Simulated assay, not measured.
Amino acid sequence: MSFPEPVLERAAARRLGEPVRAFTARAGGRRYLAWAALLGLAGAVLALAATSYLRDDRPEPGVPVAVLSAGYLGGAVWLAGRTAPRGRRRAVYLFKDGIVLTGPGDPGVHQWDTLASVTVSGVQRAARGTTRWTITVTTSEGERIRLGDFADAHELGEALSAEVAGRAFPRHLAEIEAGETVRLGPFAVDLDGVEKDGVRAPWAAVSEVGIDNGMVYLRTADDLQVLTSIASRTPNAVAFVELCSRLRERHTENEHGL
């Protein structure tokens, strides 16, 4: 996908650097267009039938068929109108130092440093069905921007998470090293371990931290404690996993005097 000139101009004004990749809204509008075409065809056939009935002076079948035809044609116009702006406007443009978002409400231009967190979740409604991804970006000012229904949405979520979490990680690590507690969703992380809902796992007991099947998890070596959270409720889940891995490794090194 090419970068439109207005997008490039907005990015240049905010000094976002070189363009990297563009993501377009999933062509979910094709379903609306398909239904619009079917309704339009049915409405046209019914309109011809109604015209024939009325021409033959048969109002009993003609009037109901004409009303049904008008309903079908109105539905087709409504679906076509609903589809047009979605497919035409929604897009996310990644640049070296930020993003430009276009779509309903014109979400704007954001440098990476002004984005506080990203959450990503996917729902697969059938065993072999398409996974629908939801991406929520929160700015440092608390604005929440919800993205979803994008082609390559998983790749978009990974790209946004990597950029935002990569900047959040050193900040959170410095806060923890200064003796503070960092909260990422339901998890509280400090120099001694991780806590969630009153259950605490010290670093000496932690064996594994990761993200799998839409869940963020932390497991202890004895498997007696498993702290979990839905990825969509864990801002910067990637940064959380990296923080835990780093702090656990540091605790192990300190224990062995390395």
Rank of each mutant, 00 (worst) to 15 (best):
Q124R: 14
H110N: 07
V109P: 04
P104W: 09
G98N: 01
G108I: 13
K96G: 04
S140H: 13
D113W: 10
P104N: 05
V92F: 05
W112P: 04
E143K: 15
D106R: 12
E141V: 15
F95E: 12
R88A: 12
W112G: 04
T138A: 06
H110Q: 12
G87P: 00
G98D: 08
R88D: 06
V109S: 05
L101W: 03
A91P: 03
G98L: 07
R89W: 13
A91E: 11
L101E: 12
E143F: 14
R125F: 10
Q124K: 12
G129T: 01
H110F: 15
V109F: 03
A116R: 10
Q124T: 12
R132L: 11
I145T: 08
T136G: 08
E141G: 15
G105F: 15
P107I: 06
D113F: 11
L94Q: 03
L101G: 06
F150D: 00
R89N: 11
S140L: 15
V92L: 15
L101C: 09
E141L: 15
L101N: 05
I135A: 01
P107W: 03
G142I: 09
E143Q: 14
G122K: 02
G87D: 07
T134R: 05
G103M: 09
V109A: 10
V120F: 11
Y93F: 09
T130I: 11
T138Q: 03
T130C: 01
G122S: 04
T102N: 04
V109T: 14
D149H: 14
T130K: 10
V109Q: 04
T136S: 08
V137K: 10
R86L: 14
W133Q: 02
V92K: 07
V118C: 04
W112R: 02
K96E: 14
K96A: 15
